[in-house]
């Protein structure tokens, strides 16, 4: 019944979905709802048999720092306790950060590692008050972009143990972000957490 008059599912490109966090971030910033943040990253399943992944650090240097799309985004590779590898990135300009994460993900996808990509993650700091916008003040929230779903969802861990998350806050943040045009995953059953994000 619900489908009968529901919206048609829309097809969209990878980039427009991921880029939706850029304009949402700008709008939330203009409304004083968040303070500046500059970190994001990618999580992937490492596979030494893929040459690109084996030499990732060397491969990413030209991808990020040369050619017309050169950026100032800094990156660092870290392993987590659950056997996954993270590319943690930092850039003072949020839109540059997002495009760098996208570029890296694209490069991995184009070099035989598409199925290794799990998610991209960005942090946003939600302030309670309009006048409180010093750097990284407020509630730290993560915005997980799942490559298989091409959409974002909020993640607010309350501890490092699996299952510890602030669900009511996540629901309300999701509707705030959606209002600002961020592409939010509608099926909440897909809002899997990532405990112990290394940034």
């Amino acid at each position: 019944m619900a489908r009968l008059f529901g919206k048609r599912p829309q097809t969209r490109t990878d980039w427009s979905a991921m880029a939706s966090i850029i304009s949402a971030e700008q709008k939330l910033m203009a409304r004083g709802e968040i303070s500046p943040s500059r970190r994001g990253g990618l999580i992937y399943r490492n596979d030494e048999s893929v040459p690109f992944l084996r030499n990732l650090k060397q491969e990413l240097d030209p991808v990020l720092y040369s050619g017309p799309g050169a950026t100032k985004t800094a990156f660092e590779i870290q392993d987590d306790e659950q056997g996954m590898r993270w590319i943690v990135m930092e850039d003072g300009d949020f839109s540059d950060l997002v495009s760098s994460v996208y570029t890296v993900g694209n490069a991995m996808g184009a070099n035989g590692a598409a199925s290794n990509l799990l998610a991209a993650v960005f942090e946003l700091y939600f302030t309670g008050a309009v006048d409180d916008n010093s750097f990284r003040s407020g509630l730290r929230t993560y915005w997980i972009y799942r490559y298989d779903r091409q959409s974002f969802y909020p993640f607010v861990p309350t501890g490092d143990a699996t299952g510890e998350r602030d669900k009511p806050t996540e629901v309300s943040l999701a509707s705030r972000a959606r209002r600002q045009g961020m592409v939010i995953e509608r099926n909440m059953e897909e809002w899997m957490g990532l405990w112990g994000i290394p940034f």
Partner: peptide, 18 residues
């Protein structure tokens, strides 16, 4: 509806992008 699971535990991880 919000799961308590970790994304890294997702069994269908290899079917990504498909």
């Amino acid at each position: 509806n919000i799961p308590d699971q970790d994304l890294r535990k997702l069994q269908t991880a290899n079917a990504f992008l498909l």
